[in-house]
Design a protein around this nucleic acid. Structure first.
Lengths: 341, 341
DNA sequence: CTGATTTGTGCAAACGATTGCACAAAATTT
DNA sequence: AAATTTTGTGCAATCGTTTGCACAAATCAG
């Protein structure tokens, strides 16, 4: 059997021409006669030739590989983003190398290392929860590898950004709760060094203040772990208060779900006693009982945007102008917050 | 600025030695004196050298890249599998290239093409729903690229396989329903040319027959689209019957969820009137009302197993012995099926 | 029919890392 | 002190493609 894979040289030999001609013929170079092009293509087919992109990349400095770095692929938001990236990058002839940081800065930098070694043409990344040292990223810009950040971004890194307007989403959600007659909403927030959680909190506060309602940050903001369990614990704590809230706006669907389950198990009526709104529009939220009002953040679209921007930066050589795109989120009103008829 | 990235030659020049020595020093070659090794490593650090794996791969024929091909990454099962693959492959120094087939055979073969061109060392794949032509896969074996199939596999492709025992999972689920006193369960099945759906159906049938209950395939098996909507439609149809079932075993959690919502909205009590069991243990199923009994298929574990097998085949050169691993699923009993106290 | 283009192809040098072979210097043995 | 082994390093080829330059043959203009 032919142990070695067929190369340009093999085709050349079979056709008694030089590898250069074969290369050009396959590339559709204009100076190669149509006849030769056909012959070469046929022989290439017959020999099942596949370009060795390693060699090609080495030669021309482009791999058509794009690196993706995210906390974990294993969560619907991020998986959707990858999907969105693929939507755009795939048809453009790019392949995707996925790496994860597990919210550990150390894994982040080793993942970036791997991507650099793989000579990816560009990188799309969301920061780890604990990233404080941005030097790993500066290595990218040193090497002129275009970078697009999404969701968890930082202005301290020189890069394009794709985010959703978390502030606006939170504002809409809170305003909606107030519209429904809630007067004392509580926000389940996340780590404030991440812009997304900060923005959601700000939108929450702003909506309350604009409505002229009293606002007590100590009573109306809880920092929690954004899991179902974290939501449950928060709900427990809230119910134990002498003045439980009449609404909960969670920065995540998971915590909202956990809270909701606990409240229901304690006989609290949703939304009559306490209205609940989540964030992310996880696919299952429509099927909860009651169905959960939440904020759609168009994760797939985020990936598409990020990839589009990256593609642009890759095509136009030399122009590094960082772009910032901010998508508008959308409030999805469902039963968990719908008090009025 | 240094436009060009630093290469071995740069380090060699700075240290006034040959690239060969530098290469060996970095690789920790024993014949290089410890002193030289140190000097070289320090200079490499100072110059921020990163190996160009393209060049290295081209030279030694290994890319330390593994290709993953699946219907869509955008579904929790597959995202988890990727996670599992990463768990094993990452620490072993491999990077992952993700491609999708969207259940279209044509995309499947072009994805494989891309992987071949990228010279991946091995491939982990789940077949597209409609794969009938296996020639794209035979190109892999022609090129001696090890292949591990998972979940949706085919014996017509020469490759290792990692699956879960769908038959057993379905059997357990159905047996449980019978234990709970159900006498007339209906199965919501999927496309029978996929082994997984076939196995689930067989497990269902077998459990009924072993229990000595009557079994009418025309009344007790429905082929549906496995989405929430598909489940809802199935439920509608079942309720319209003169003899509605007393249990539903769905081949997916999504259909089970859709069915459950519809049943509840029509005043059917779950599990008293109709017990429901799903398949997959999607993360949200614990939070449905009632919480959904389902079958855990250890998706992350599947990925880990597949990667482990692939790693083995990559390390031991020349031994192609295909392995088949079949994981045991686990029944997760929750309220949607728990009739007895 | 001569000189200027155009057309079609080949040569050879990259791209960056690795490695078999060679060989000098140092260390060891006799 | 000579012979042998060990240690440390360099030379040069190689992996498979691409491409600037060169050049012959064919075509065209005058």
């Amino acid at each position: 059997m032919s142990k070695r894979r067929t190369t340009l040289a093999d085709i050349a030999e079979a056709l008694d021409m030089s590898p250069s001609t074969v290369s050009r013929a396959l590339a559709g170079h204009e100076r190669i006669s149509v006849a030769t092009r056909r012959t070469v293509r046929e022989m290439a087919d017959r020999l099942k030739y596949r370009q060795n992109s390693l060699a090609a990349s080495l030669r021309n400095g482009k791999t058509r590989l794009i690196g993706v770095l995210m906390p974990t692929i294993n969560r619907s938001f991020f998986a959707s983003v990858v999907r969105g990236i693929e939507d755009v990058a795939g048809p453009a002839g790019y392949s995707i190398v996925v790496t994860q940081n597990d919210d550990e800065p150390q894994k982040e930098s080793s993942a970036l290392d791997a991507l650099i070694r793989a000579q990816v043409d560009g990188v799309i990344a969301s920061l780890s929860r604990n990233t404080t040292d941005y030097s790993s990223f500066s290595e990218l810009s040193d090497r002129r590898v275009p970078l697009v950040l999404f969701d968890r971004v930082s202005d301290r890194i020189q890069a394009s950004q794709v985010t959703i307007d978390d502030y606006h989403g939170a504002f809409l959600a809170t305003q909606h709760l107030i519209d429904q007659g809630c007067r004392y909403p509580v926000h389940l927030g996340g780590p404030q060094h991440l812009n997304i959680y900060q923005d959601r909190l700000n939108g929450f506060r702003e909506a309350i203040e604009q409505a002229g309602l009293p606002f007590n940050p100590y009573r109306q903001i809880m920092m929690i772990d954004h899991t179902a369990e974290g939501g449950k614990q928060a709900a427990e704590e809230l119910l134990a208060r002498s003045d439980p809230p009449d609404a909960i706006f969670s920065a995540s669907d998971w915590a909202a779900t956990g809270a909701m389950r606990h409240l229901l198990s304690k006989g609290v009526r949703i939304p009559e006693d306490i209205a609940v709104v989540g964030f992310a529009n996880e696919s299952f939220t429509a099927f909860l009982e009651p169905s959960l009002t939440t904020v759609e953040q168009f994760s797939r679209k985020i990936g598409q945007e990020a990839a589009t921007i990256l593609m642009q930066q890759l095509e136009q050589s030399g122009t590094p102008k960082a772009r910032k795109v901010r998508l508008k989120p959308e409030l999805i009103v469902r039963r968990s917050s719908l008090r009025t008829q």
